[in-house]
Design a protein around this nucleic acid. Structure first.
Lengths: 200, 200
DNA sequence: TCAAAAAACTAATAAGCGTTAGTTTTGCAG
DNA sequence: CTGCAAAACTAACGCTTATTAGTTTTTTGA
């Protein structure tokens, strides 16, 4: 059997990580076996352990790699001198783009974080709580400055973060719906809902 | 060991189904074992098989029970003589309420349907596709009658159906956010986004 | 009160899991 | 060409899994 790293691009570890994200997404982390993962790259299961430490390590890397990208973007966003509404639009569009660009990884991170081993689970949840709080704060400020209508910020964040996850189930083949159109339509829907809400 | 049906309400099968939904939700279907399920009602695992056929049967019942409720509501809605926008609002509110009332079951149905055994998986997907198509049709009509702004109906359905799933992660303890407030805010956000979108 | 039915139990099965140990093959550097 | 490290292999371990078989206990109904 030939080495796996000569076939695809990148080193073996990266190739395994990519295949793992694909398989974890399509079958679920717990239902996917190391033998299936190995078979997907035409080697035997024990050979994987020349490159990785454990199955759960793969999940940890996926989840925190995604989290890191979101956190980094949030930090950059906080430095920008733009209006609150522009920040929100920026966030929505960023989420949609990441969901398209890193489809498998984001899906796994969203669906399988519960399977993270301690203490990674606790850390993951803490980071997510922090991220959500930052979004709530952005919304709260925008409301105070009357950029958007008065709405419960926490609920708006819940709505936005859940809505963008719809990209997961986006059927590319539905005719005429390009990634760009998806992004524009969804952003418009979510943003206008904030602007024109009659807060009654 | 005493019978389980004398403790809780309903017959044994219903009690098991309820406990299963709870456990499948909190740990995931594949990660939850029959021993854990049995332990949660203080019996041994093999005793479960006096009441149920298999583990997967439990999942099938949960998923299709939820699907049936959504489908029935859709059929009733189609008979109503109300505006398109009222139909959409009705749907959004119904989804949010079901997500609260049948929290565990809807969560499991949304997260674990991939684990359904054939041919149930195929049937489930077919029903969901049908349901989505009906929603798309409602939106399409509303656009034609200029009740809502021109938007790609498929994307709007994606956005709405994903957004309402945010109720899954709703933290009841966040102060001052009652179920009613959650429903009103989210509905308003999603609905106004449809009405005031400048289709540019 | 007592038999029959329902539902619990214990013991065990076969299959599958992640992972380890030890060995052989592969491929690159000298 | 050759030697060495990297990475594949086979075999197997210890555990867990859903589920079955067979038996005992509990509840029910006449």
């Amino acid at each position: 059997m030939s080495k796996i790293s000569v076939n695809g691009k990148g080193n073996s570890k990266e190739i395994i990580a990519t295949k793992a994200a694909m398989l974890f997404r399509s079958r679920g982390y717990s239902s996917c076996t190391m033998r299936q993962l190995a078979e997907s790259m035409d080697i035997e299961a024990p050979s994987l352990y020349n490159h990785i430490g454990s199955k759960s390590e793969l999940l940890v890397n996926i989840c925190f790699s995604v989290a890191r990208e979101f956190n980094r973007h949030m930090e950059e966003l906080e430095l920008l001198r733009i209006s609150g509404i522009e920040k929100i639009e920026n966030l929505i569009r960023f989420h949609i783009r990441i969901m398209i660009r890193r489809h498998n990884e984001v899906y796994v991170s969203n669906h399988e974080w519960k399977q993270l081993p301690d203490p990674h689970l606790a850390l993951f949840l803490q980071q997510r709580r922090l991220y959500e709080n930052k979004m709530v704060q952005i919304l709260r400020t925008a409301i105070r400055k009357k950029e958007i209508s008065p709405i419960e910020p926490y609920i708006a964040v819940l709505t936005i973060l859940s809505a963008v996850r719809g990209v997961e189930t986006w059927q590319r083949h539905k005719k005429g719906i390009t990634p760009r159109k998806l992004e524009d339509n969804m952003t418009q829907h979510l943003l206008n809902g904030l602007i024109h809400s009659n807060g009654h």
